[in-house]
């Protein structure tokens, strides 16, 4: 499903949350939605999920006006994973994941038990939570619960997955697990929009980045075009150590943009960094840079 939004404007009281935002999400594409706090990332995700009606602009699903697409049919095609959602009852993990199948049942519609069970099992396997399927979801750690809720969204088997900061509460290993999981879901043709704060993860895993700043799209495109030193300094107000390792870029926010990047010991300006292939990060010089980029 192609989701497109044009000229989106959202207000909350007097504050403008989003202003003239255009956005497209396509099948088989992993789009990262990034930006500083309060930039409007979650709001934009809610708008394209059809959960919030924008004051201005329209959202289209496969070219059809969002308001003309029935909620129920949209629910099978679009899964939404809310940021740090809680589960209000001590349900078992499996029952929580099974809630992802609700769009496929109805008051008068018989449900396809076999398809449901298959989807639930597959989602739990993918998220690596099958071994604690019977546990009470309220007793899980933050990371475990995040994966359960992700599995719940995967169980919808929707063409599009919108995930709001799914790696927020996770340790580094589980962050990588979830990002790899999103990438493999993308490889199966699902269109994914994911809100991220970690710029390295955004740069490494996303096909395209949309950077929001104060309710507007500040930059959009391939990660290396969006996450330039100038744009990072301008939007986030930080300077980052950046470099390349094994073909992937890392971006480590280091200090406020008002300060120069200094070597703390020698007080000299630090040039761009690159990993030297042994897990160490060294200053880049022209020759090294060429070699690294060539290889």
């Amino acid at each position: 499903m192609i989701i497109s939004a044009s000229g989106i404007g959202v207000k909350r009281g007097d504050a403008t949350i989003l202003q003239s935002v255009d956005f497209v999400a396509r099948p088989g594409e992993l789009v990262g939605l990034i930006g500083p706090n309060g930039a409007g990332k979650s709001t934009l995700l809610e708008v394209i999920a059809g959960l919030r009606k924008p004051e201005l602009g329209e959202v289209f699903y496969d070219g059809k006006l969002a308001s003309s697409v029935p909620r129920r049919s949209l629910a099978r095609r679009l899964a939404y994973l809310k940021q740090d959602a809680a589960v209000d009852w001590p349900l078992s993990v499996e029952k929580v994941v099974a809630l992802g199948r609700l769009p496929y049942s109805g008051l008068f519609a018989a449900r396809d038990r076999r398809a449901d069970d298959k989807a639930i099992r597959a989602a739990m396997e993918t998220a690596g939570i099958a071994h604690f399927a019977e546990r009470n979801v309220q007793t899980l750690s933050g990371g475990e619960r995040a994966r359960v809720l992700l599995a719940r969204a995967l169980a919808v088997e929707a063409e599009t997955l919108l995930a709001d900061e799914p790696v927020d509460a996770l340790d580094p290993l589980h962050q990588l697990n979830v990002m790899e999981l999103l990438r493999s879901t993308r490889d199966r043709g699902t269109g994914i929009v994911v809100v991220l704060h970690d710029l390295t993860l955004a740069s490494r895993f996303c096909d395209r980045l949309v950077l929001l700043d104060r309710g507007r799209v500040a930059a959009e495109g391939a990660p290396e075009d969006v996450l330039t030193d100038e744009i990072i300094a301008q939007c986030y107000g930080v300077r980052a150590l950046t470099g390349i390792h094994a073909g992937g870029r890392f971006i480590v926010p280091w200090q406020k943009a008002s300060q120069q990047l200094h070597d703390l010991k020698t007080d000299r300006l630090v040039p761009p960094l690159v990993a030297n292939g042994h897990g160490r990060i060294v200053p880049i010089n022209a020759a090294q840079q060429r070699r690294t980029l060539d290889s």
């Binding site: 999920a49 609700l102 109805g106």
Partner: peptide, 22 residues
């Protein structure tokens, strides 16, 4: 008639809406 929506609401209002409940 509310019973299925009540299940979905265990995950909060936004998620319940995204699961197709008005």
């Amino acid at each position: 008639l509310t019973s299925r929506a009540l299940d979905a609401l265990a995950l909060g209002e936004d998620t319940a809406t995204s699961l197709g409940f008005d």
